[in-house]
Design a protein around this nucleic acid. Sequence first.
DNA 1: TATGAATGAGATTTCATTCAT
DNA 2: GATGAATGAAATCTCATTCAT
Lengths: 191, 191, 191, 191
Amino acid sequence: MMARGNTRQRIQDVALELFVEQGYEKTSLREIAEKLDVTKAALYYHFKTKEDILISLFRDLTAPIDELISWAQEQPSTLETKQEILRRYSEALAGASPLFRFMQENQGTVRELSVGENFKDRMFALRDLMILPDASLTDQVRCMSALFTMHAGMFVLKDAKGDPEEKRKAVLEVATELVVQAHTGVTTVTR
Amino acid sequence: MMARGNTRQRIQDVALELFVEQGYEKTSLREIAEKLDVTKAALYYHFKTKEDILISLFRDLTAPIDELISWAQEQPSTLETKQEILRRYSEALAGASPLFRFMQENQGTVRELSVGENFKDRMFALRDLMILPDASLTDQVRCMSALFTMHAGMFVLKDAKGDPEEKRKAVLEVATELVVQAHTGVTTVTR
Amino acid sequence: MMARGNTRQRIQDVALELFVEQGYEKTSLREIAEKLDVTKAALYYHFKTKEDILISLFRDLTAPIDELISWAQEQPSTLETKQEILRRYSEALAGASPLFRFMQENQGTVRELSVGENFKDRMFALRDLMILPDASLTDQVRCMSALFTMHAGMFVLKDAKGDPEEKRKAVLEVATELVVQAHTGVTTVTR
Amino acid sequence: MMARGNTRQRIQDVALELFVEQGYEKTSLREIAEKLDVTKAALYYHFKTKEDILISLFRDLTAPIDELISWAQEQPSTLETKQEILRRYSEALAGASPLFRFMQENQGTVRELSVGENFKDRMFALRDLMILPDASLTDQVRCMSALFTMHAGMFVLKDAKGDPEEKRKAVLEVATELVVQAHTGVTTVTR
DNA sequence: TATGAATGAGATTTCATTCAT
DNA sequence: GATGAATGAAATCTCATTCAT
């Protein structure tokens, strides 16, 4: 009989780990339960359904992004604000990177989960904060690209050599440049 | 009773449609069979397993990319070559966009399928063709970002207004700029 | 937080309500507990098992019937006695009509519960009190029919218009006539 | 490997037997499958859900009753018609008596199944055919009682001694008398 | 008096797959 | 080329029940 009281948290941890590793659909509750050395029924004491575990995981991710969005919506829509958004977003991503990787790799599955909508909404909100309404198509692509560079960058560079913090900086730099360029039509020459 | 003989093709079409819409795991053979108005057993006459259907779909996607890669490997590693790679890649993507979207949204699931490895290999080959071995971290990010911009661009801009061909051009333009910048340290000012 | 001490009673009330509405099997302890805003474990403080709740409910129903039966067994087996039995039975039924309805609609489930036997025994005892041992088959049917008319009448006429007390009287009248007829071979002409 | 082709029918037979014996809820598909020596999955080849098995069983019961109802609706609403209805109903019941007993004993469970409504509708249709719209409350009870006498009679007299056909006749006789009485105000003296 | 946490057993259902015809 | 019938494995989920606190 081991120390309890943290079971809910432990379920979340193990579930996230397995969801990331194998995908949501391929991870069974049996697997989660076995890894925790509890019964399947115990999972149902803490979460109403399998999807519920996922949802609870998402709340932890979306909270910081929600904060970021509402902060941003109160700022003037200047280039400086946008640079700050990217900076903060970069940190939020780094802080929840496994979940984010899961998100990225399971879009298809997650799409029809109730949580999917929520996430999409966040992405669109962010996009609207980055984009200039009357910008050229090319500049709009730049802004989207800035966001996606940050998403992708996180785990694409995972197997590249180098310090993670340095890599994050490099990704942020490229993303920032894209936004600057979308706003000013020039780029800071970086060498 | 209509003339058949094209069942294999029809299976592929319906399967792709459903895989894209719902994901691979969530699509059952029953569903595919019902939509085709044949029995599940009929599917097994044409394909050895469910995964086999997926693999057959991938061959159609990977073939053009393989051609692109082997063509590129015989070219000199110049900026012009890379620009041409992006141009050709853009077209390959546009030609198989549903499958590509499926790929993107089901990375997690597809990863452990035999087909997953194949795809990853292609991506790495492409990356190696775009990147300069001794480039700065930032420039490497730019090259990756160029590739991902193209992936994302396809379906992120799906709901944006405007002609698809124009959008493709805009995406290609931004991607090209990123690569140019990674190679020369400057950007073509686009206005 | 309101003053308690009546929890046992409240459990019985809610359980009866749900058992009647959904059947015994389909009603879970979770449901009962939730409706009472206590935990399932609390139910187990008051009752040893789920079946125990049912049994406790039955005691309230069977007590008046038991009284009726033992009273009847001490009376002479005359037509007047039988009419009085029906009269009293009618009142007992009216007083516990939800439970009776449950009984009626869940015979199948209740049959193998220990409580089932008890109930059947009561029914047979009543039948033996109503029937003449050497009566014709037809007259025996009349006596059974009298009893069942009363059971059914209660809730079959539920959606019919009219005052419940009047309906009870009408049912009792028909039942009484059946017994009279079984005993005398004639019927009181009622118009 | 035994002779097949009749599996669907065998499932229905075994299911009815167990449903009658233990109730619908308490009968598991495992049990049915085991008794048939097939796997649970085989049941799902023939029926979409557990409820579906029940529904299929009901169709066999309701068909003759439906015929009876539509025949009756085309007849003049005379006493003779009503006597004929009872006669035919008696036969229909005798022909499907296990199913009917199940129905009677599982009203609670069956009520919310889609099949429940159907059944209720039939009962109401029959009632409307038997009842005189402007009859006294007592006469209405007599008509309902006639119907219920027949339902109950079937299996209440099961353990009584005597030939089933004779018992059926006796039940029919009592039911008929009730209807006659409701229509004429007198009873045929039967001795 | 009650709760929080958990269990063991079992329910219904779904799936990919097989094979004789 | 295809079907009808079935299987074995596993999935999600529910339930009555227990027990330390």
